[in-house]
Design a protein around this nucleic acid. Structure first.
Length: 280
DNA sequence: ATGATCTCCTGAGCGC
DNA sequence: TGCGCTCAGGAGATCA
C-alpha cells in the first residue's frame, strides 16, 4: 500500500534511469484500471517525448515530458512500477512502457485501483486539484492545522487520512504518527491545541523521513522500482500489532475501525484527551 | 457544509 | 480439497 514514502522511494529509484530519455512506445493490456488513458491517447502524447522531470505530488507520480505533456500515475493499493521487462507470464501487468536505450517500465497492479493518465499541454491536471498540502511544505504549520480544524468534530484519524487536507498519509503512517505524538485516534480535531499540532506535525515529518530512508514499508505488496521490499515495517510501533505488547509501555495494542479502516493504537500511550476550555 | 458510508478490485487467510 | 466468508484501503461518489 504505497503511501508518501513508498511513492517517493519509487520516484528516486526511477529518476536516474528515466530522466532525459524518450518514451518510444506503450502497450496497454486488456483489463481496465480504475482510471487510465487509452492506448491511442498514451501513444499519441508519449511517443518520441523526452522525460524532463519526475515529481511527486501526494501519492501521485508526475511525469513531465517535453512540450508540456504530463503523465500522472497513482499506484492505488497494489500498484508497482518495475524497471526492466516483465517476466513471461507475469500476472497483472497492465502497461509496459518502452524507452530509449532498451529501458522498459512495467505497471503491475493486482487490484487495479491504480491510475495512469496522460494530459495534453495546457490540459488541467484535474486529479491534482483534490490533493492537499505536502507534509514537508513550509505552508504546513501547527497554526494552519489548527485553523483548518477549528470547530471540527471529526476524529483525528479521519482528518489525517483526508488527502484533501494533508497529502500522502495513509493508514500506516497516520497510525504511527498518532502513536508517536501520544494522541488518541478518536480525539476530535477541533480540540487539539497548538502544542499538540506542533508535536504531531514534528512526528509526521520524522516518521515519513525515516520511512523514506528505510526504503518504505512492505506489509503485503509493496516493492520499489527495482523489485525490492522496504524495511520500515520493522520499525512499526502499532500498525498491524493488535494484541501484541506496546514497544514503549508493554500494554496490549488495540484495534478499532474508523472510516472503514483499521486503526491501531496503544490505550496507555495515547490517552483520550480531556476537554479543556481554551485550546490556543 | 460536514462527516460518515459505500464502491471499486483480487488474493490471502481462515473455519468448516 | 474446496467452498464461502472476511479483510486489506485510496479516493471519488453518495447519503444523512
Amino acid at each position: 500500500m504505497p503511501e508518501l514514502p513508498e511513492v517517493e522511494v519509487i520516484r528516486r529509484g526511477l529518476a536516474p534511469r528515466l530522466l532525459g530519455r524518450r518514451f518510444l512506445s506503450v502497450k496497454v493490456g486488456k483489463k481496465r484500471l480504475r482510471q487510465a488513458s487509452s492506448q491511442e491517447h498514451l501513444t499519441r502524447w508519449l511517443s518520441g517525448r523526452r522525460l524532463e522531470r519526475l515529481q511527486r505530488r501526494g501519492k501521485y507520480l508526475v511525469f513531465r515530458l517535453e512540450g508540456g505533456v504530463t503523465m500522472l500515475i497513482h499506484l492505488g493499493m497494489t500498484g508497482r512500477l518495475l524497471l526492466g521487462p516483465p517476466f513471461r507470464g507475469e500476472k497483472h501487468v497492465h502497461l509496459v512502457f518502452t524507452l530509449e536505450d532498451g529501458i522498459t517500465l512495467a505497471f503491475q497492479d493486482v487490484r487495479r485501483f491504480g491510475q495512469v493518465l496522460v494530459f495534453a499541454p495546457d490540459e488541467p491536471l484535474t486529479p491534482l486539484n483534490q490533493v492537499g498540502r505536502e507534509p514537508f511544505s513550509r505552508r504546513v504549520t501547527p497554526a494552519w492545522l489548527g485553523e483548518v480544524s477549528v470547530g471540527r468534530t471529526r476524529p483525528l484519524k479521519n482528518f489525517l487520512l483526508d488527502g484533501r487536507v494533508l497529502a500522502g498519509l495513509g493508514n500506516i503512517y497516520a497510525c504511527e504518527a498518532m502513536f508517536a505524538a501520544g494522541i488518541h485516534p478518536v480525539t476530535p480535531v477541533g480540540t487539539l491545541n497548538f502544542k499538540e499540532w506542533g508535536l504531531l506535525l514534528q512526528e509526521i515529518r520524522r516518521i515519513l523521513k525515516q520511512a523514506i530512508r528505510q526504503g518504505g514499508t512492505t506489509v503485503n505488496d509493496y516493492l520499489d522500482s527495482h523489485g525490492k521490499t522496504g524495511l520500515f515495517q520493522l520499525d512499526l510501533m502499532v500498525y498491524g500489532r493488535e494484541g501484541e505488547s506496546c514497544r514503549r509501555c508493554g500494554n496490549l495494542i488495540q484495534r478499532l475501525v474508523q472510516a472503514g479502516r483499521s486503526t491501531f493504537f496503544c490505550p496507555h500511550c495515547q490517552r483520550v484527551k480531556q476537554l479543556s476550555g481554551c485550546n490556543f
